[in-house]
Nucleic acid binder design. Structure first.
Length: 583
DNA sequence: GCCGTTTTCGGCCCGACTGTTTTCAGTCG
């Protein structure tokens, strides 16, 4: 059992206890324990064997015993009993915005609502508005929440799809009957939201490959199994499709199944314009539908196909018909950023606010990974839920960071923690830390954490007045979206980019898998306005350093090169840039 | 249920917002 599995069970126990009306502090104990497990950098199993689990903060006697039972038997009686005492639909109802444990409980007890479908029915019939504590607006909000959920019902975060896809890809690649193999579809294109995962394989023995694929451990059930393709549902509920084709078809099929649909339409039109025909089986010297090998224009790679259609190679991330054909015709496809170019992250948290780790552990971890810098930008006081810091605490933290840097230097590390703060932009547009303290920080990130219901003009002006503050370097997660959970707040993002352009403020590409914000679709506009990007982990524990990889992928999708991204700069240059922003 | 400790039980995150009320409960960040 993996750490993430254990954490999600603890989290679910927390939710179930909440629904039962248990002591809220008990609920939080489970939530804290789940977070503590997620933040671990080694497997729980090892901690258990070495009797070090009880030393983890947030895990006491009772939860430790439960984890032990889970790890040794794969089950937990307490959890199963709890689960059977509560209708499964209630937990799901908690995910609807505006519905918490009290309201869910009331709906269940008074109207017998124990599923999303029943909830929708009682809302539509107007019964909910008549309940005590509910009303017309709540009823509408619930219906909107249900519609939103339904829209994304079979969608998954990119990181979740990658996590299941990459191990399967490795196994396919090693299979003796597999000649070539690739991920295709939206995973290969680095879309932030994924419907299903597509694998493509060339082989002389397709049946053997298909059998191997459908019998993988991670396959939950098989939807279809034919001679050239199979579809399965993987653990976690993601659908995966496998296509097996011949070696000569491989480049054409790869291009076709990578998409996007919009990109493919233009590709096929370009073929027609040249008296050719393009489909997943080949590029043919014909204007008719054909698969005749005699008419095939042989291509050994995707590069060949693009070249025969008068284009230089277009990386999968850019295949969205958003300007890539123009650029490829002129040979002006940019050299996209590589994750290895990133030297650190400028927006991260420590246990001074809502992060899991102390400053020294963070510094050592990042230094050993070979990064050059890591900014600590804990929350400010207007985020009490995140244990935000006031000016006095911030100043104390700056002093401690200085001491840590001296120690690191003495040990010979070429690495620095940078001081900083993620300062809240208040509803009026003011920042909740005074300028003279902001001026002491190496890095200032300004973000919105409240007042999301303001109208577009108010929020836009609020953000613009924040980026006009000369001490602010970076605008954090500019739209506030949480993928598959929450829509962005209403904001005129182009006006915000214009303001950043005028003030020289950088915009964050928040690489947290649920954010990936600013959206890749806006980066070319930002680039045209000379606004620089910073790819930030928004790390809350040591494992979150992995988000740099995700951020770099999304930056590529936004057409960004290393030169467009501030945190590709080495420490000395970065320090100069941070200073010059304020002069 | 965890933590800390003036060691055996009290405190644990809290302010804003929303929609419901008519003074506040529930939810959210």
């Amino acid at each position: 059992m993996k750490n993430d599995d254990i954490a999600s069970i603890l989290e679910e126990i927390g939710m179930l206890l909440e629904l039962k009306g248990e002591n809220p502090f008990k609920v939080r104990a489970y939530e804290n324990a789940a977070r503590a497990i997620q933040a671990l950098t080694e497997p729980v199993e090892r901690l258990l064997i070495e009797k070090r689990l009880s030393a983890v903060k947030g895990i006491g006697e009772s939860i430790q015993k439960k984890i032990e039972e889970l790890v040794t038997t794969g089950r937990l009686a307490y959890y199963e009993e709890l689960k059977s005492s509560i209708p499964p639909g209630l937990v799901e109802m908690l995910n609807i915005p505006g519905l918490g444990p009290k309201k869910v409980k009331a709906l269940y007890e008074k109207l017998g609502v124990d599923s999303i479908d029943k909830l929708e029915a009682v809302c539509t019939s107007g019964k909910v508005a008549n309940l005590d504590g509910f009303g017309e607006k709540t009823q509408i909000k619930i219906l909107q929440g249900i519609a939103f959920r339904r829209q994304y019902a079979s969608k998954h975060l990119l990181i979740a799809a990658q996590a299941v896809a990459h191990p399967i890809y490795s196994k396919l690649k090693q299979h003796p009957d597999v000649i070539q193999c690739s991920l295709a579809g939206s995973v290969r294109r680095w879309k932030e939201i994924i419907g299903d995962i597509d694998f493509l394989v060339s082989s002389k023995k397709p049946l053997k490959v298909i059998e191997f694929f459908t019998k993988l451990d991670s396959v939950q059930n098989i939807i279809a199994r034919g001679e050239t393709k199979a579809a399965v549902i993987l653990q976690g509920g993601i659908q995966a499709d496998l296509r097996v084709i011949t070696e000569s078809e491989y480049p054409f099929a790869l291009a076709y199944f990578t998409g996007s649909k919009e990109h493919n339409i233009v590709m096929r039109q370009r073929a027609i314009d040249r008296g050719l025909r393009l489909n997943e089986y080949g590029l043919f010297k014909s204007t008719e539908e054909t698969r005749d090998p005699a008419l095939l224009l042989p291509c050994s790679s995707e590069e060949d196909i693009y070249s025969k259609l008068g284009l230089c190679y277009i990386p999968p991330e850019l295949r969205e018909d958003r300007g890539e054909f123009d650029a490829a015709e002129k040979g002006k496809i940019p050299e996209l950023i590589d994750e290895k170019a990133l030297k650190g992250s400028l927006h991260n948290h420590s246990n001074w606010s809502d992060g899991a780790d102390d400053l020294m552990s963070i510094a050592m971890h990042m230094a050993k990974l070979g990064l050059q810098y890591w900014a600590i930008t804990d929350h400010s006081k207007s985020s009490p839920q995140a244990n935000g810091l006031d000016s006095d605490k911030l100043k104390k933290q700056f002093i401690e960071i200085k001491l840590i840097n001296e120690k690191l230097k003495a040990k010979g590390f070429e690495f620095e923690l940078l001081t900083g703060v993620e300062v809240d932009i208040l509803p009026g547009g003011k920042l909740d830390i005074e300028d003279e303290v902001l001026a002491m920080a190496d890095v200032v990130v300004a973000s919105l954490h409240s007042g999301f219901s303001q109208d577009e003009k108010e929020i836009t002006n609020r953000i613009i007045s924040a980026v006009k503050n000369p001490f602010v370097h970076i605008l954090g997660h500019p739209t506030g979206r949480l993928l598959l959970e929450r829509e962005p707040y209403k904001v005129d993002i182009k006006a915000v980019i214009d303001a950043c352009s005028e003030t020289g403020t950088w915009i964050e590409l928040n690489a947290h898998p649920s954010r990936l914000d600013l959206d890749w679709r806006y980066w070319s506009y930002a680039k045209s306005k000379c606004v620089k990007c910073v790819i930030n982990c928004d790390a809350h524990n040591l494992n979150h350093v992995e988000f740099l990889r995700l951020g770099a992928g999304i930056a590529r999708k936004g057409w960004l090169t290393a030169a467009d991204v501030i945190n590709t700069q080495p420490l000395s240059k970065l320090k100069k840039l941070l200073k010059s922003k304020r002069s």
